[in-house]
């Protein structure tokens, strides 16, 4: 049996359900009782009871694509900040296409402290820090664009059901948008104004992720903003 209504706000420790259900995200099971472990909105499914959390942090998962920042260079590769409690490692062998010669090659010529990369997590468990690769197609050093950081809990909403939200954003803002599972999003567009528009939209989605009619509201907001900018441009050109 359920103790709340669907999409009601629940807090850690709230008894959500009792019976033969599966404890989904942000819940835990004790006997036949399922409790919330994070503040969020409860979602009752056919078999799974889960909570859409208001705020989480990123815990790496093998296969995730993430955007990270180089923090340190050492003899074997780089240390990467992936917006997680765990620092990630990118070994030279997972970044360079030719074999790495320790004494001869200078890794900073390829990636230096402060550089951004789009990478994939190839290993992570309780005993080792996450290991990255950038050797697959689509991955690598980021050379242009701006990044925006959101709580990883919001990423699903930013992508939207069947990518509806993210596709709308790309279309309306004319930007290329790369979403990292770790809550970091890269925006690259025809001009800085386009990019700023996309960032504004993403931040608003993150803030209002739990409300309804969001896709339409964001679309309207972007169009209104574009209209206002065009007006300003026309004023200037007169």
């Amino acid at each position: 049996m359920f103790f709340f209504e669907n999409r009601q706000v629940v807090t850690p420790g709230d008894l959500l359900a009792e019976g033969d259900y599966i404890a989904g995200n942000n819940t835990y099971k004790e006997g036949s009782k399922i409790y919330a472990s994070r503040l969020g909105l409860v979602e009752y499914g056919e078999k799974v009871v889960q909570v859409v959390a208001l705020n989480t942090f990123y815990i790496p998962s093998v296969g995730d694509q993430v955007i990270g920042k180089i923090e340190d260079v050492n003899i074997n590769g780089w240390v990467v900040n992936i917006n997680s409690p765990y620092k990630a490692t990118l070994r030279a062998s997972e970044a360079l296409n030719k074999p790495y010669r320790q004494q001869k090659d200078d890794l900073t010529r390829f990636l230096d402290v402060g550089d951004l990369i789009f990478a994939k997590i190839i290993a992570f468990d309780r005993t080792i820090d996450p290991v990255l690769t950038i050797k697959e197609p689509g991955l690598g050093k980021i050379t242009q664009g701006q990044i925006v950081k959101v709580s990883p809990a919001k990423i699903p909403r930013i992508i939207g059901r069947k990518a509806s939200m993210i596709n709308m954003l790309k279309r309306e803002t004319e930007c290329k948008i790369t979403v990292g599972q770790n809550g970091i999003i890269l925006i690259s567009g025809p001009s800085p104004e386009h990019e700023r528009l996309a960032i504004m939209a993403i931040e608003k989605i993150a803030q209002e992720a739990h409300t309804s009619g969001l896709t339409d509201r964001i679309t309207e907001m972007i169009r209104k903003e574009k209209g206002a900018r065009n007006e300003r441009k026309d004023q200037v050109n007169k």
Binding site: P12, N26, A153
Partner: peptide, 11 residues
């Protein structure tokens, strides 16, 4: 702790 999104058994 709850605001930080740290999973808890109870408040």
């Amino acid at each position: 702790l709850a605001d930080a999104g740290i999973p808890m058994r109870d408040l």
